[in-house]
């Protein structure tokens, strides 16, 4: 799987991603190479890639959203490192066949962050892969914060192999609820930015996110006074509620339980 490091966008903030050309440990990868730094984006019908630099061994490079002035407005920018040159245009998400960045403990990560001109700065160590286009999403989130001057956003990041922009509904539920709190149209190969404060959630509510035919990474950002402070974290995929054994069968069971619950709620409506 070829790894991408998205460059985030969010209200009153700008995104930055630092890519690193050294392995995260000394035993899974024995060779390293000078790599191309690429930015890939979709225009809705084709993937485009531009090489923005070269990264030496043991070096890091910071990519600022603000510097990517060649991107169309609202395009999802995916940075990546490649040994070989990626095609300038392609009908499927490009990948480098010879890349040697496959590690498990941990994955080869980038620093993905947001900062505001008012001082807030937040990041996490992460990476992203393309998701299958027939998948569904189930995610449980405790991240809403409440108080004066606090704003909560969902940054729903979807990457697919196809460059086409597909729309689908993202459903917001409460874990103990019996109705859909909100449904919002989201688009594949985008960062979908959704303000959460007016969706009817309260302090003890557990937010449940569901889609029927799109997968993505739900990132939650909370901002104080438009960026004086920022907090950012992603949910765990529900498969990580379990370890060992047949955890993927358990994951499927959980998704079926909630898919059934969603379909009953939709029938009621």
């Amino acid at each position: 799987m070829y790894i991408f490091y998205p460059i985030l966008r969010a209200p009153n903030c700008h995104g930055y991603t630092t890519v690193h050309n050294y392995a995260p440990n000394n035993w899974e990868i024995k060779k390293n190479y000078i790599k191309n730094i690429n930015i890939t984006w979709s225009d809705g019908s084709i993937w485009k890639t531009k090489q923005i630099g070269v990264l030496g061994i043991n070096k890091s490079f910071v990519i600022n959203e603000r510097d990517l002035d060649f991107l169309p407005k609202n395009a999802l920018a995916l940075s990546s490192l490649s040994v070989n040159k990626l095609p300038a245009e392609s009908s499927v998400l490009p990948e480098d066949i010879d890349i040697d960045m496959q590690t498990n403990l941990p994955e080869w990560r980038g620093t993905i962050g947001l900062k505001s001109s008012l001082g807030g700065n937040t990041s996490f160590q992460g990476e992203a892969y393309s998701f299958p286009s027939n998948g569904s999403l189930l995610s449980f989130s405790p991240f809403m914060q409440y108080g004066e001057h606090l704003t909560n956003y969902l940054l729903f990041l979807s990457i697919e192999k196809s460059p086409i922009f597909r729309n689908t509904k993202l459903f917001f539920l409460k874990a103990n609820g019996s109705k859909i709190e909100a449904e919002v149209l989201v688009t594949s190969n985008h960062i979908n930015i959704i303000k959460l404060d007016d969706l009817g959630y309260h302090r003890n509510d557990m937010m449940v996110l569901m889609t029927e035919n799109i997968v993505g990474i739900p990132l939650f950002m909370t901002s104080y006074k438009k960026g004086i402070e920022l907090s950012l974290e992603h949910t765990h995929p529900p498969a990580s509620f379990a370890i060992h054994g047949n955890r993927w069968a358990l994951h499927k069971e959980l998704k079926n339980i909630w898919a059934k619950r969603l379909s009953l709620i939709k029938l009621d409506n």
Binding site: H20, Y22, R109
Partner: peptide, 8 residues
Amino acid sequence: REYRLQSN
């Protein structure tokens, strides 16, 4: 073994 933090 080494753990190399991938953060500047």
